[in-house]
């Protein structure tokens, strides 16, 4: 079984800055990490591999520094890693990124399961996994919170819905996005780090993917961010220490 896990490099801290011109996150010089949801996607792929065998390939799209998150994902058990990197990809929105990643899947020869974290903690869109499924015309299962059963032909998972949970079975290929509740991460060991550190990382650029370049990068992205502003912080909070004080506040509000 071949599985691809897509991971994203996200800022380590919540203290991030926005580029006032492009209205995108300033990522250069910022300490980064693997998007936390994506590590649960890696773990899910490893659990499937433990049962069905095969290969887990971890893929990220980003600048050369994104190799660090590929190695981090490999510490958690992935077998191979691919960096998708090209200056032309800079500023790609979720639609454009989905297009590029779908072409990566084709370039790699396809996989039985393409895994994504439920969403990235920087953009919080939860759109890229479903976007890739749409581009490839694959079935998709979003917000998996439990891997129930898997064999060479199908996978059965429990997913979160607006009303509770649903058990879904799908054949392959399929796109699955993963919640943090889906599994328990295992901490890596020094040997895991050494294996990841010494692993060869394959790099793919735009010319390898036979892309329609009008669909990639900032100019190829249909999203237009007109303005970004910080949410106002509520400084005028008063902590009430008794029901009497609350009653007084309500009385004043009614005046």
């Amino acid at each position: 079984m071949i599985q691809i896990v897509f991971v994203k490099q996200v800022p380590f801290s919540t203290k991030v800055k926005m580029d006032p011109v492009t209205h995108t996150l300033v990522r250069s010089g910022v300490r980064t990490q693997v998007n936390p949801y994506d590590l649960h996607a890696v773990r899910a792929a490893i659990e499937v591999k433990d049962q069905c065998g095969g290969t887990v390939v971890v893929v990220t799209m980003g600048p050369p520094s994104a190799v660090a998150v590929l190695r981090e994902a490999m510490m958690h058990g992935a077998d191979e890693a691919v960096l998708v990197s090209d200056a032309a990809f800079a500023g790609s929105d979720t639609w454009s990124t989905s297009y590029i990643l779908s072409m990566v899947v084709r370039h790699l020869g396809g996989a039985d399961i393409q895994w994504f974290g439920k969403q990235a903690i920087d953009g919080d869109t939860a759109q890229v996994g479903p976007g890739v499924a749409a581009q490839l015309n694959y079935p998709q299962i979003t917000e998996m919170n439990q891997l129930i059963e898997v064999d060479e032909h199908s996978v059965t998972v429990q997913k979160v819905t607006d009303y509770g949970y649903r058990v879904v079975k799908s054949g392959f290929p399929v796109v699955i996005t993963v919640n943090k509740e889906a599994n328990q991460l295992l901490s890596p060991s020094l040997n895991d780090w050494l294996r990841a550190e010494n692993a060869e990382i394959r790099t793919i650029n735009a010319s390898s993917l036979q892309l329609d370049m009008s669909k990639v990068g900032l100019s190829g992205s249909p999203t237009r961010v007109k303005r970004i502003e910080l949410p106002s912080t509520k400084q005028d909070i008063v902590m009430l220490t008794s029901a009497h004080e609350l009653a007084q506040v309500i009385k004043n509000l009614r005046k």
Binding site: L186, S187, P188, S189, L190, N191, L194
Partner: peptide
Amino acid sequence: LSQSVNLFEKYFPSIHDLRI
């Protein structure tokens, strides 16, 4: 850790496999 562990491993040979 990788560069400093050599003196410690004689007291704890499993350090290489211990999950951190």
